[in-house]
């Protein structure tokens, strides 16, 4: 098709102060500009790197790591990868008795589904970007992906694990009857907070809390469930952020305990 060319009129040289501000981008959403200026492959690449590194580290520390505990003169820290410590010795790593719950919870999580469908399966890699797939698309309507519907059944054990991580965090404050405030204590506490925020913002929990009701005012306990649903909705609104920070906090707690096992001192205050 022929290219239509046009010479702009001479008055185009006039520039108003308002126009200069608009040209600089002021008044326009930074997120919108960043999103449009960022290449489509940047986010999938970042997710592949982060989730891939987490997976590799999880496998390494579960099967080949030095073990679950750091026990010193004062502190007794348990790595979140091994909590609760159900079976310390045996033919397989004790992490296997625990990890299936949080990993299954994350693997079926609605946010992580978005992430891995985009980043690993390129289904699609980004919005309005073409796909590589040539075979028929089935989405989550057939096996194995239809099993993501079981997300709620991973929430129950994952919730128990979070409760036990709170127990671990509080236990680390105790040094034979004295209050112990170590850096590891703080890390375990923050880890429990972030994991709680992630778990209680879960879409399946939001549905169970009250999202599945149609009429709050005419159901038994409906008003209480409506209030709970609203609280969960606040956490759910930032579910992606909680998913990432809680994943990093688990790794940070784990790495910190590894460093303590390697001989690094634990900065602390001991209140007698």
């Amino acid at each position: 098709m022929a290219q239509i060319r046009y010479d702009p009129p001479s008055m185009a040289a006039q520039v108003s102060p308002v126009a200069a501000v608009a040209k600089s981008g002021n008044g326009v959403g930074l997120r919108a500009r960043l999103r449009r200026a960022t290449p489509w492959w940047a986010q999938p690449l970042a997710i592949v790197v982060a989730l891939g590194a987490f997976t590799v580290y999880s496998i390494w520390t579960s099967f080949f790591g030095p073990g679950p505990n750091h026990v010193s003169e004062h502190a007794n820290y348990l790595s979140p990868f091994f909590s609760p410590l159900i079976w310390k010795t045996g033919p397989v790593t004790p992490a296997l008795w625990v990890l299936w719950a949080p990993l299954g919870f994350r693997a079926t999580c609605y946010y992580y589904r978005k992430s891995y469908y985009r980043a690993f399966f390129w289904d699609p890699p980004a919005c309005a970007v073409g796909e590589l797939r040539r075979r028929p698309y089935r989405g989550e309507s057939r096996l194995p992906m239809v099993l993501n519907n079981l997300h709620r059944f991973f929430w129950y054990p994952a919730f128990i694990v979070v409760v036990l991580l709170w127990v671990d965090a509080f236990a680390s404050f105790d040094d034979r009857g004295h209050l112990y405030l170590g850096l590891g204590t703080l890390i375990l506490l923050v880890n429990a907070v972030l994991l709680s925020a992630y778990s209680f913002g879960c879409h399946a929990f939001r549905h169970a809390a009250g999202g599945g009701l149609d009429c709050y005012s005419c159901s038994q306990g409906g008003k209480a469930r409506w209030r709970l649903w609203r609280v969960v909705t606040v956490f759910n609104g930032h579910h992606a952020a909680w998913a990432w920070v809680s994943m990093f906090s688990v790794v940070i707690a784990e790495v910190y305990i590894r460093l303590l096992q390697a001989g690094m001192p634990d900065p602390h205050l001991l209140v007698k």
Binding site: Y110, Y117, D123, C127, R138, G139, E140, G237
Partner: peptide
Amino acid sequence: GLGYCNITKCCSEVCPEHIHITDNAIIP
């Protein structure tokens, strides 16, 4: 065909009314 949706949230990203289509309609 609800099972075809794999929650990639592109619908929510482009919605000019900022409806959380995935979080507040499809996932429920």
